[in-house]
Write a protein that binds this DNA or RNA. Structure first.
Lengths: 190, 190
DNA sequence: AATTTTACTTCAAATTTTGAAGTAAGTTAC
DNA sequence: GTAACTTACTTCAAAATTTGAAGTAAAATT
């Protein structure tokens, strides 16, 4: 199989991907003092990808729950994500595509449903009539606000202290790097 | 109170998109425009979720590419992820479900395709004939090996030095925490 | 022995994603 | 000016993925 995972001199002692990623000893909701010790688990490409897939699934569940609680029936979690991606700015479909790496026809489909549901407004741009400008309606903003409000509880759970915050930041930046590397690889080959 | 948390080393080209995300520990009753001007860049629940969604999409693209290169036509990226989740151990469907937080009927569907494609073997367990034991066939192992091999290039790109490695670790563990928090919230209602 | 639980599988329907057109508005090059 | 091309989307149909409600058969419990 594959043996060399990385060129670095850090002692590797586990994980040929059949690994045990799920059982990391630390970080339980009560264990606050655990500085992520640099023990010799090396995180690979695929482990990260699998983790991301899992976490993504989990979040979809969370969102679906929150929306059920809010009594939202006419749009699903995917559409809500688009709503959140729009945020409080007015933008074009193209900009939205960049924001979420969506595929064009896909966003078009979601926007249609969101427009039908009255969550967004679409106006053709003055300068360039090909370009549709998108903006949340009152209703759309309300949903976003409700979701963000519900999210506050999670934020408090996740970011309990300065160290948590630091780690969340690092995770975010690292994911951004993954996004770039994987994105470039797909576009420009690698 | 909370100040610039990002120091030394974590260089990232900022300006991801218009992230401001100031609504953090204050969730007063209702604030449309009354956001507390928080000058620290704080990563919230939803930003992370959106990032994870994006990165997940990117990775799917990478996987699809690799599989096209390998000439794999009979199964898709999702099935490949299942294959990778199985790894080199023999396990039951239930264990596999836990590994990826899949839904049962879903995995059943994938396993059927993987079995049809000759990538896995299923044998009913001796002890418990309800339980199907899953294992990669030669062909399945080959695909995993090929994928992991291709992944090596990404690993080298992602983990250039010790600091990268540290950050990848932190990202991984932080994601794991997200997984737990979001998972528990869904199950036990927060 | 009857009932319940576990461990899956099946199937049909809903959702989401892809990909190949299509349209209409701008741009560029004669 | 206009023919040809590019951009910015939209539409549509097919494919892939996910969900959810049964169904089955083998334990386990009563």
């Amino acid at each position: 199989m594959i043996q060399k995972l990385l060129h670095e001199g850090v002692e590797v002692e586990t994980s040929i991907d059949g690994f045990a990623a799920a059982d990391f000893p630390e970080i339980s909701a009560d264990n606050k003092k655990a500085k992520p010790a640099n023990h010799a688990v090396v995180v690979t490409h695929f482990e990260l990808a699998r983790m991301i897939e899992r976490v993504n699934r989990r979040f979809a569940g969370v969102l679906r729950n929150e929306m059920t609680k809010l009594g939202i029936e006419d749009v699903g979690p995917a559409q809500a994500m688009v709503l959140l991606a729009i945020g409080d700015v007015e933008l074009s479909v193209g900009e939205l595509l960049d924001r979420g790496h969506y595929v064009g026809s896909n966003i078009s489909y979601y926007l249609k449903q969101l427009a039908d549901g009255g969550y967004i407004d679409r106006v053709a741009s003055q300068r360039d009539k090909r370009s549709a400008r998108i903006r949340l309606t009152e209703k759309g903003e309300q949903l976003c606000a409700d979701l963000r409000n519900a999210g506050g509880t999670y934020n408090r759970l996740l970011a309990r202290d300065a160290e948590d915050l630091r780690n969340l930041e690092i995770a975010f930046q690292t994911l951004h790097r993954l996004e770039l590397v994987w994105g470039n690889a797909t576009r420009y080959g690698l």
